[in-house]
Design a protein around this nucleic acid. Structure first.
Lengths: 192, 192
DNA sequence: TAGCGTTGTCCACAAGCGTTGGCCTACAGG
DNA sequence: CCTGTAGGCCAACGCTTGTGGACAACGCTA
């Protein structure tokens, strides 16, 4: 899907990445609708029409800006008992270090296409891990969804809504509180 | 703040409520930006300028449309050991039965004012309960935030992003899975 | 019946949006 | 050196948005 051949490095690569960076920032801060191409171009110190030339249209730009890899560890390498802690820690680092995830979440909340993309990412990247770790593979989707609900819920309150107490929590505290939850969602017996 | 004197029932009350209903639907479905005054007016079968007359501007309309009361039970009436289950059950019913909460969540994700309003609602309505139920009142904000993260996370994945496995879960299953989590966040000893 | 405030419609405005095409500049390959 | 082509800017388009003002129908009261 990705033409990542590094040959013919174009002279405009600097501009392209400047656009992408500005786009990520704006999408993260404002969501899809409020993040205007004009504003992004202004941030990147170029003309709005360049965005169109390089990314076709606004949707194309968004798609390019949030092509994200959760970089989840190999499912096979995750121990069954520490999956919860590993996941929470990993998500927290990912979320702290780049704003793309916030952008994706903000857009997913307003935009149908964004929601689908988010769905895809979690299905493709979290589900395999759940399938590997949880007792009955048939329950994997539900368990992965529960885990997502807690992980995304934290991201929502901390990075998007910015509830002061959620922002104030230290990463260590968050892991201490959330890891058992996620662990339970993934591996505990069904509570029915 | 609210002039809720029921006297002088105006002849335009039907219109006013029609506008509010249409506004709630649109805001829930589209979020703040995509929900245009014109579309809302069209839904309500009136002229856009009526919206302006009755609610001043778009923000005023939104404020009127999402004046929401979580209808949380009296904190004094909640038993300490069943607070988790009570909360999850209550939130689930509230969310299933009216779309205003979805609207609020969608808007909170894109709009600064929406985020603040959401913050206010949870601070005013969930915090007192947490203060009453959790062991050390000083930890109440953090514990309430953790509980919100799980509750809002579920709402996000189920009603906004519509992850299929999250949608497929029955209310009973959700309560069974989430109640212990929320209960722990509220009352379990600090895991540090 | 005359007068008046309320309700509602029509129309227009200014601003901002995504998007397009043309034009100039400067570099790369021969 | 000369020329083709890619990079970049400018101005403009068609459209939608929030908003406000002018004006017609209605119902009440005197």
């Amino acid at each position: 899907m990705n033409e990542s051949k590094p040959r013919t490095p174009r002279r405009s690569d600097a501009t392209r990445t400047a656009i992408l960076e500005a786009a990520r920032e704006r999408f993260a801060a404002d969501g899809y609708d409020r993040a205007t191409i004009r504003a992004i171009a202004r941030d990147a110190n170029i003309d709005p029409s360049m965005v169109m030339r390089y990314y076709g249209n606004k949707e194309g730009l968004f798609a390019a800006a949030v092509a994200i890899d959760l970089e989840l560890p190999d499912p096979a390498a995750v121990s069954r008992d520490t999956a919860g802690q590993a996941l929470v820690t990993h998500f927290l680092t990912m979320w702290e270090k780049n704003e793309v995830l916030t952008a994706l979440l903000r857009v997913g909340a307003t935009n149908e296409a964004g929601a689908e993309r988010m769905q895809g990412i979690f299905a493709d990247q979290l589900l395999p891990l759940a399938r590997r770790v949880c007792p009955d593979p048939e329950q994997a989707p539900a368990r992965a969804a529960l885990a997502s609900s807690q992980l995304l819920g934290l991201a929502l309150t901390r990075y998007v809504l910015r509830f002061p107490p959620a922002v104030a929590l230290s990463p260590e505290e968050i892991v201490a509180w959330l890891a058992p939850t996620v662990q339970r969602y993934l591996t505990a017996p069904h509570p029915a």
